[in-house]
Design a protein around this nucleic acid. Structure first.
Length: 731
DNA sequence: GAAGTCACG
DNA sequence: ACGTACGTGACTTCA
């Protein structure tokens, strides 16, 4: 990366370094200063400000070194005012223990021990249940004193939009944790039939609010987005915060899951009390408000205790290992943004979905009869096993291929092949499959997902699932709403804006190919994007010398193959040519675009050496499969290694756009524009009709400039936008 | 709970 | 010899 601090005065032999590298070299900020006793302070400051990879770090360096008024911040700094105690909070946040001790005394840094004490056992009996007001006050005071507190909320539902608060747990030191019940025994049937003695819910929240919002106390959570939403619903804005799930994700993506139970096993060698041991499972499961309070305390306080201990293990690894970039710049600030998107939800036309369900249902019944007729008897069309036997055994069609479990493949490729050969039943099954898919997954299911209180659908975005840094969406998944087929597209038209409003969709045009052109440094591709040329036409021209429908389609397939980590077998299968021909095309591609070949070789080398690959923002994806037993496993890791930096950089960029879009809109006076959805390269907004023309340029600018200043791209990022009454109309 | 299938980028 | 692209989540059938 090109950002460097040239000629750092007073640091002989250090050479060009980014701020993060300086920190890494000397252990912490104090080390940097110690190594540079005769630093020309203002000059260092200016230099760091201009070149450092963490603007916030730079600013605090300047503040520390110069003790004079700060120049205007460069990046995120512009988005937020400084907290009350910026330096102390920042240092604690960064894990600069020794400096904190010097400035704030021993007690200020007690929460971040240089070495984690392994010996403190988990003793459930030591956890405290807070029933009296004085005890609550004592715990709050202890959190202020520790300047760090792990927080966990217990509720009666995994869906935090409709969940009720049942209790809150706090931990201020390993082994020192409490549980504050507020909603137990609310009309339970078996376990608790009346409300046991508890502090009133509003009182507890009123007492916690100043603590949770205090800039000098760091709040720590595991999957904090959930708790943030719960607190936001009560008018509490938790800040500042750390999330152990995200720390794990940004440090160890690819090495395992990031749920608390798994992290506790991995890092603390501790088996947490499992939720199902407290609440049961299946039809015997009860919600948390029905759990007796003493049992609830063991479970809930342990969660906060574990979270605090995980933070002590993970946070100190951040600067040395993760380069401190994606966590600070991307993932952590995204949490409240996603929380607001989930809270907002999107309006769905229930009647339209119902009409589509009815319509699809009637068509499915017709198709079912036709399939059975053609097959010579009834069978379960939805059973791949039965369908395969009907097609390839009963009807005796040729070309049946059995997989390792001994069933014939009947997927879309196979059925399309048969349909192309004139097998009528194959086309009927394809149509039946499409409509049952649309009905069961979308038109039926989405109606069930509409929240009766808001009349809207509230998805849950997960930050720590995808190996590459992408988000994922569940309950319902709003990142796979149909668009490609005509029937499917009608479902998109059921996602609408309320009266007087429209939906605006903004998407990055071919962002992954643009990033590949930049990362592999391919002059022709860069020039084509700079001039707005059609990129598949360019590939067709380079590879085949002619541009027509056929060569362009082939070129498009090849461009995708490049992004996914090419193999001659895979390309052959997609293009319908033999393997030798596919290999010839690949060779020709590498010949025309040698940067791509080099990029792939370098990336795989890096993977073999380090065990991970990185995005332009420094996000890691570990791929232990590169050391796998089989060739297949190792080649799979190689393909992932090619794709992960591209897909991951794209994810980093749109996430940064999401973090910056709110403040940018606010600065433009567009406070009624709400971001609702992210679909990997697309953002969907809901806004008053009259705001569309003002909002478009703001959104476009933020998205187009989202990589800057930390990453300088050699290709422009193109944005396409549209607005309409429905999501379907916004494209 | 695994396998197969298919919706999206 | 190996293998039919990268990343997800939801639904259905069936053991």
């Amino acid at each position: 990366m090109g950002d460097s601090v040239d000629n750092v005065p007073g640091v002989p032999g250090v050479g060009p370094k980014t701020a993060s590298e300086l920190i890494r070299t000397f252990g912490d900020l104090e080390g940097v200063l110690a190594a540079a006793p005769d630093i020309k302070k203002p000059k260092l400051s200016q230099s760091l400000i201009e070149h450092a990879d963490n603007a916030r770090l730079s600013r605090e360096l300047v503040r520390l070194v110069c003790d004079r008024p700060l120049p205007q911040p460069l990046d995120e700094l512009a988005l937020k005012g400084l907290p009350k105690e910026p330096l102390q909070q920042f240092l604690m946040d960064q894990g600069f223990r020794s400096l904190l001790m010097k400035l704030g005394g021993e007690e200020a840094s007690a929460a971040l021990p240089a070495r984690v004490e392994d010996a403190i056992p988990f003793v459930h009996a030591d956890y405290e249940t807070v029933i009296a007001e004085a005890d609550l006050d004592r715990w709050i005071a202890s959190a202020y004193e520790a300047e760090v507190v792990a927080v966990d909320t217990e509720t009666d539902d995994v869906d935090c939009i409709r969940a009720n608060l049942v209790g809150i747990s706090l931990a201020t030191a390993p082994g020192k944790a409490c549980y504050i019940p507020v909603g137990h025994g609310r009309g339970g049937e078996d376990l608790l039939t009346e409300r046991p003695e508890q502090l009133p819910h509003p009182l507890v929240l009123a007492k916690l609010k100043p603590l949770l919002e205090d800039p000098t106390v760091l709040k720590i959570g595991q999957n904090l987005k959930y708790d943030l939403i719960m607190f936001r619903r009560s008018g509490i804005d938790v800040t500042p915060y750390d999330d152990t799930m995200l720390l794990s994700y940004d440090l160890d993506a690819g090495l395992g899951g990031h749920g608390m139970d798994e992290l506790a096993k991995r890092h603390l060698d501790h088996a947490c009390i499992e939720f199902k041991d407290v609440c049961g499972t299946g039809k015997n499961q009860v919600s948390f408000d029905m759990v007796p309070i003493d049992r609830a305390t063991e479970y809930a306080a342990e969660d906060a205790d574990v979270t605090l201990r995980l933070w002590q293990r993970l946070k100190p690894r951040l600067v040395p290992e993760a380069g401190n970039r994606v966590y600070e710049l991307v993932d952590r600030p995204l949490v409240p943004v996603l929380a607001e998107m989930e809270r907002a939800g999107i309006l769905v036309d229930r009647e339209e979905l119902h009409r589509l369900s009815t319509q699809f249902g009637e068509e499915i019944i017709r198709l079912e009869a036709e399939v059975h007729e053609a097959a010579g008897g009834p069978f379960t069309i939805g059973s791949p096993k039965q369908l395969g036997e009907v097609l390839f055994d009963r009807l005796g069609l040729a070309g049946g291929r059995k997989g390792k479990s001994g069933v014939y493949s009947t997927d879309v490729n196979e059925l399309e092949r048969l349909a192309g050969e004139g097998v009528a039943v194959a086309r009927l099954v394809l149509d039946w499959r499409q409509l049952t898919k649309l009905k069961s997954t979308y038109t039926d299911a989405l109606q069930q997902q509409i929240n009766p209180a808001t009349d809207r659908v509230h998805t849950c975005f997960s930050l720590a699932v995808a190996q590459t840094g992408r988000l994922s969406s569940t309950d319902p998944n709003l990142q796979n709403i149909p668009i490609r087929s005509e029937h499917g597209r009608r479902i998109r038209h059921a996602f609408v804006a309320p009266p007087g409003h429209v939906l605006l969709s903004a998407d990055y045009s071919q962002i992954e190919l643009r990033l590949a052109a930049h990362m592999a440094d391919v002059p022709q591709l860069r020039a084509a994007f700079a001039q707005g040329q059609d990129i598949h036409n360019l590939t067709a021209e380079e590879l085949f010398g002619v541009i027509d429908r056929d060569t362009r389609a082939k070129a498009k397939t090849i461009n995708f193959a490049i992004l996914y980590g090419i193999s001659s077998w895979g390309l052959a299968g997609r293009l319908g040519v033999d393997r030798g021909e596919a290999q010839a095309i690949i060779d020709r591609y590498f010949d025309r675009f040698p940067g791509v070949k080099n990029y792939m070789a370098e990336t795989i080398n890096q993977l073999r050496e380090k065990g991970f690959v990185t995005t332009l923002f420094g996000r890691k994806t570990h791929l232990p499969g590169i050391k796998g037993k089989t060739v297949g496993e190792r080649q799979s890791a190689e393909r992932q290694a090619i794709n992960a930096p591209i897909q991951g950089t794209s994810a980093d960029i749109i996430k940064r756009a999401m973090v910056r879009i709110g403040p940018a809109l606010e600065a433009a006076g567009l406070d009624k524009v709400r971001m609702l959805l992210q679909v990997h390269d697309e953002l969907v907004f809901e806004l008053p009709e009259g705001d569309v023309e003002a909002a478009k340029p703001v959104i476009e600018r933020v998205m187009a400039e989202a990589a800057e200043p930390h990453v300088k791209l050699s290709v422009p990022l193109g944005i396409e936008m549209g607005a309409g009454r429905s999501w379907g109309d916004a494209h």
